[in-house]
Write a protein that binds this DNA or RNA. Structure first.
Lengths: 341, 341
DNA sequence: CTGAAAGCGCTTACAG
DNA sequence: CTGAAAGCGCTTACAG
């Protein structure tokens, strides 16, 4: 017994006005007279009318939704960013669609579809590792709707972006270890082709050089941002003849895995080695030991990205639009770092 | 220089057929002759045409998307479930919209909107704690689109649901501890008003009774599924005159917080006390010590929920539709449990 | 197998 | 301030 869908027509009939008037009352109440406004809102209330967004979207040529593209839905790192994005979007009456690159088998064709088939008005990309052809498609998509990257970014592409102070954060980490007295500092990196990996690795090397410290090649330990990667790195560290006294990991997950694996080998942090992460995920504070790390406020990253994208959606071609935002990070000192010995 | 949007008209003109034929070729190629099909697909290719989903949706009265409602976007527990849902939906050409109850300020009005304003064809609710009035609105929504709960469920409402074997998992946990030799077993619960809390707590008490073990009231320690809740519970445990030798926590996060707090007090797991969780989140395996827990496969929970919802969307009113699925859990024995002493 | 035409439920110039 | 009417881009009975 599906009730007949209520339409503007029904409301108009009840209110004794035209559909145009009802529509105006709903979207721009000020252009309607006080008395009409009242009649219409009464009719809306009494009928229980709800606007059909699909119809409105078709008419206005807007989807009123935004697509967020993640590398991997199962990575908790992104949860807070999504929360930030969704929070701003919903305040603007927009919804958030989510897709993960992992799932988009047909290499981008599917992604472009979201923008081209009018399901989304713009896109926030959280995966800097998009295939180059996908990137090009995005940049040249016929409808060319706004696309923006957050956290990561895409080298060689000119999408606006929201990032955190990766260089500054990395340098702060190294300096913290240096100030504790460490002179032998290693770095566990993210996956090789990742922009964050490259940025942090370069900043790390720069700072080490500036401090005139040694940096044997094997002190740059390749990782992949994951717990497992951290475990592998720990075994690499254990196998070194000349062990660094401190290790800066490019992500908290790496650091947690690193510490966990050391612990399985009877090596204790920070007694035998100091370990730092990057991100300040929820668990960093609860780990044993609580993790010293570089904090990025992912909620704000998400909100900022959503705001920038919305402004481009609402004011296309605005030359005033900011092209990038760099958000601050901060050093959070906990118990996983200590003076050497 | 936004190009004019390509429409079916354009393709029809190029192919030398009617729009009806183009539409048919796209949606149901079999009803079209071989030669026409070829002409049309050539035209689609040469023009680069992409269907406008909004128009199709308006015409077919389908949104081709599903809303997923979470209690909290920032909780990593849900990531894998979302991955499972999204994976099945996208294989069916559906998209996934996400909202969190935390954000829906206007108490459900906003939620119903998603279903009523034609943005979603159905809804998967992962939050059993929805306000009763919201639940009633959902059940009685004029359009009454399919709604389904997963993981948690709503007492008193008759939505179809996907759950895991909460009772069985709880009993398996208690038995594991019993088999190790523990006779003094405590339970840290989730938030009081949560259905999972109630189910697991009852199953715990039942099994303890069946094993003829003591259960002083303060051995049921109130928690809230979170890390912090686990820390609080640990302090409660520490303060007990007669300390249980084993603790079954209603979630992994609780267990991790519990262990972390004990460790800060110099109490070691499993030497001084055995601790178990429930869920098997990614981190459980990497924690120190690796956590013994009850594993639920959240990817499959998500996929199952998506499948059940899709079947209700595609075959509304099908009396054959399954009304609930109960998914298996398994005991994963790691290092956080050991014989007493 | 194919086409002409109506219509999904809105919004918005255009008149008045 | 308000209404009549066109139209957003599709799909689908209805004819043929």
């Amino acid at each position: 017994m599906a009730l007949k869908t209520l339409t503007l027509q029904d409301v108009a009939r009840v209110a004794g006005v035209s559909t145009a008037t009802v529509s105006r009352t709903l979207s721009d109440p000020n252009v309607v007279s006080e008395s009409t406004r009242r009649k219409v809102s009464d009719a809306v209330k009494s009928t229980g009318y709800r606007i059909n967004r699909t119809a409105r979207n078709l008419r206005t040529q807007r989807a009123h939704s935004v697509l967020v593209l993640l590398p991997d839905l199962a990575n908790p790192f992104f949860s807070n960013i999504l929360e930030g994005i969704s929070s701003h979007l919903s305040s603007q009456g927009y919804s958030m669609l989510i897709a993960s690159t992992k799932q988009v088998h047909d290499s981008g064709e599917r992604l472009i579809d979201y923008l081209d088939d009018a399901r989304a008005d713009g896109m926030i990309v959280l995966d800097g590792g998009l295939a180059p052809d996908v990137v090009e498609m995005l940049a040249n998509a016929p409808q060319s709707k706004p696309v923006l990257t957050a956290c990561e970014w895409i080298d060689g592409a000119s999408f606006p972006s929201v990032r955190c102070e990766n260089r500054h954060g990395t340098r702060a980490a190294v300096n913290h270890l240096y100030d504790l007295g460490h002179r032998k500092i290693a770095h566990v990196t993210g996956p090789a082709d990742n922009v964050l990996t490259q940025t942090r690795k370069a900043a790390f090397a720069d700072e080490i050089a500036e401090l005139r410290l040694d940096l044997p090649p094997d002190w740059i330990i390749p990782g992949d941002f994951s717990l497992i990667g951290g475990c592998d790195a720990a075994r690499a560290w254990i196998g070194m003849k000349d062990r660094p006294t401190a290790v800066f990991c490019a992500s908290d997950q790496l650091a947690l895995g690193f510490i966990a694996e050391l612990s399985r080998h009877g090596i204790s942090v920070p007694r035998h080695v100091s370990v730092m992460g990057f991100d300040d995920i929820d668990l960093a504070e609860q780990f044993i030991p609580p993790l010293t790390t570089i904090r990025q406020d992912r909620l704000i990253i998400g909100e900022t990205a959503a705001k920038m994208l919305m402004s481009r959606i609402l004011n296309p071609g605005d030359p005033q639009a900011e092209n990038s935002a760099v958000l601050p990070v901060s050093l959070v000192i906990r118990d996983s770092t200590a003076p050497p010995q």
